[in-house]
Design a protein around this nucleic acid. Structure first.
Length: 169
DNA sequence: CCCTGATTCGC
DNA sequence: GCGAATCAGG
C-alpha cells in the first residue's frame, strides 16, 4: 500500500515546502506519514539546509559526543508523531480538494510564498496542481491553521503525542 | 514550556 | 538511505 520511501514526488514536495519557509514539523504534517525528524533528516541528506533562515545554525557545534545514549531501549511504543493528524489529512485531502471552496473565499487564498506565520497553512488540493492553494485564513497562536482548520486537524485530539516527550534525562 | 533545526547513530 | 533519539538554541 503506502510506499515508505521518498519518492521523487514526495521529495519534490519536501523541497518546495522547505524552501517555502515552512517548518519541518509543518512539512511533515503536510506530507503525512512522516515525522519532522524524517523531514529534517531527508533535507540534510538532500543537501538542503538553512535555505534562508538559520536561527540555530548560528550556534557553535562543538561536536558533542553521546556516550549516554546507549541506554536500554525498552520496546518503543509505535505510532509516534502525528499519526492521527496524518490520517485526517489523508481523508480530507483525497476525496475532493475543492470541496473546501465553500469555506475559503478566493480573496483569501494564498500561494506558498504568500504564507505567513499568521496565515492558515491548510493545504487544499495537490501542490503539483495549479489549482493548489492554502487557506490563508487567520492562524491561531502557535498553530499553523485557522480556527476552522485547526478544529479539523485536531479533531481526534484527546492527547496527541509530542516527539519532545522526554522520559528521562 | 513551547517551538525550531542539527547532529549522531542504530537499523 | 532512513529516521528515532538526542542535543542545543530561541
Amino acid at each position: 500500500m503506502t510506499v515508505l520511501t521518498w519518492t521523487d514526488d514526495r521529495v519534490e514536495q519536501l523541497k518546495k515546502l522547505w524552501e517555502g519557509g515552512l517548518s519541518a514539523s509543518q512539512i511533515a504534517a503536510e506530507l503525512g506519514n512522516v515525522t519532522r525528524n524524517a523531514v529534517i533528516g531527508k533535507v540534510h541528506r538532500l543537501g538542503l539546509s538553512g535555505r534562508a533562515k538559520s536561527p540555530t545554525s548560528a550556534a557553535p557545534r562543538p561536536r558533542k559526543a553521546r556516550p549516554a545514549q546507549h541506554m536500554m531501549r525498552v520496546t518503543r511504543p509505535v505510532a509516534r508523531g502525528n499519526t492521527a493528524l496524518a490520517h485526517v489529512f489523508e481523508v480530507e485531502a483525497e476525496p475532493d480538494p475543492v470541496a473546501h471552496d465553500n469555506v475559503v473565499p478566493m480573496s483569501q487564498r494564498l500561494s506558498l510564498l504568500e504564507l505567513n506565520e499568521a496565515t492558515c497553512h491548510w493545504p487544499i488540493g495537490d501542490p503539483s496542481n495549479p489549482e493548489f492553494f492554502f487557506c490563508g485564513g487567520k492562524a491561531l497562536q502557535s498553530l499553523p491553521y485557522c480556527a476552522h482548520h485547526s478544529r479539523i486537524a485536531y479533531q481526534p485530539a484527546g492527547d496527541r503525542r509530542r516527539q519532545q516527550a522526554k522520559p528521562t534525562r
